[in-house]
């Protein structure tokens, strides 16, 4: 199974990953529209953490024994058979936040769409490389 690998030594904290993730998960898929016209604004599922010169982009690690899957009470949080990603089935999610509470990386967020759901990295579905990896200008993220 492929994973997103973080190379913190090359992350320059430009946050292009955040922007591209947001656009990728917006309705329009257009950068200006995603930021200016979509309400509520779509959420980025990757976040750059910074401390001094150290920075890295953190998204769901798609753990092998994912606590969020075990602790999901509806079964919405499940492992995608195809790419091994831990993904949230938005139709089943009721927003109980068991996943947020159990994620040791703090990468699950609340999102309010038609109803409240847990929002997290889905490895951009199955369309090849995730947007954050493709758009990282310094290859600080890799998908392998």
């Amino acid at each position: 199974m492929k994973k997103i690998h973080i190379h913190e030594e090359y992350c320059i904290g430009c946050r292009l990953c955040e922007i591209n993730c947001l656009v990728k998960h917006s309705k329009s898929g257009k950068i200006i529209k995603a930021f200016k016209e979509e309400f509520p604004r779509p959420l980025s599922r990757v976040h750059v953490e910074e401390k001094g010169y150290l920075s890295f982009a953190l998204q769901c690690r798609h753990c092998e024994d994912a606590q969020c899957i075990e602790n999901c009470m509806t079964g919405a949080m499940h492992r995608d058979e195809k790419n091994g990603a831990v993904v949230c089935d938005e139709t089943r999610c009721v927003g109980c936040w068991m996943c947020i509470m159990s994620c040791p990386f703090g990468v699950v967020q609340r999102e309010k769409k038609e109803k409240r759901i847990a929002s997290k990295c889905d490895l951009c579905g199955s369309d090849g490389e995730p947007a954050c990896v493709v758009n990282c200008p310094n290859e600080a993220l890799s998908y392998e």
């Binding site: 936040w97 947020i100 509470m101 159990s102 040791p104 990386f105 703090g106 699950v108 609340r110």
Partner: peptide, 9 residues
């Protein structure tokens, strides 16, 4: 509450 998981861990 997003970061709560980190503390709980």
């Amino acid at each position: 509450i997003s970061k709560s998981g980190i503390y709980i861990n």
